[in-house]
Design a protein around this nucleic acid. Structure first.
Lengths: 116, 116
DNA sequence: CTCATTACTTACAAATTTGTATGTACCACA
DNA sequence: TGTGGTACATACAAATTTGTAAGTAATGAG
């Protein structure tokens, strides 16, 4: 999520693994808090501090990291307002919105699968 | 995937994160080689050695770990034949088969999303 | 008796992800 | 001058995941 060794076996393996569109997609969603964040943002755009309030156990560092990754991957748009104190809003991109229905199905599958 | 410290912040956070059915589902699929394995098994049941041949870069250890996790999570069924040398076959469970169409959609999304 | 085959297991190390603690910039307001 | 709020950044440590290397059991073939 942050620094990577470009020549580790880990990274080289990632290259071929990610050939698979599905693996690629799931890697983008696999961060610890990413889906929870996407879910909150699906309802409405939120500020950094509002997001933080939604998740009692997330740290500011983690929230920042996950948001940055989501932004990099084109799932979240970040807007900074030049005010003091600062205001930053996060909202889903079109791509993330398209993902919505699929995630809904996965969620249904998850609830069914876990009760076995 | 193997040993866990049950009282780390990491593990405690997992408890609440996994409340979310969606996060739960994606955690099950998030291992490095899991989706690739599921994809191969979707075509037909395969032996350990056959799976290994499918992925040039996976190690036996990783293949074992991922298969064990998939089995634990009820996605893969493992059948051992009492022969020598041993023969072990892996196949998808009903639950994993139900997952198929959803993964297909995710895959399509992945390919669209990556080409932006 | 030796060797080959299959499906692992084990000990260990490296890489990555997650968590902890503390600090920063900006300016309005008291 | 001092304090407060927002949205981070940074240094560091812990936990987890992934990779490396080597070894094992069973037994039929030679």
């Amino acid at each position: 999520m942050s620094t990577r060794k470009p020549n580790s076996t880990f990274s080289r393996n990632e290259q071929c693994i990610i050939d698979c569109d599905l693996t690629y997609a799931v890697q983008k969603l696999g961060g610890r808090w990413k889906l929870l964040i996407l879910d909150k943002l699906a309802a409405r755009k939120l500020r950094f501090s509002e997001l933080k309030k939604e998740f009692p156990y997330i740290t500011e560092r983690m929230l920042t990291l996950q948001l940055r990754a989501l932004e990099q991957d084109g799932l979240v748009k970040r807007t900074v307002y030049a005010e003091v104190p600062p205001r930053v809003e996060y909202e889903l991109t079109k791509s993330a919105i398209e993902l919505g229905p699929i995630l809904k199905q996965l969620s249904v599958w998850g609830s069914k699968n876990r009760n076995i």
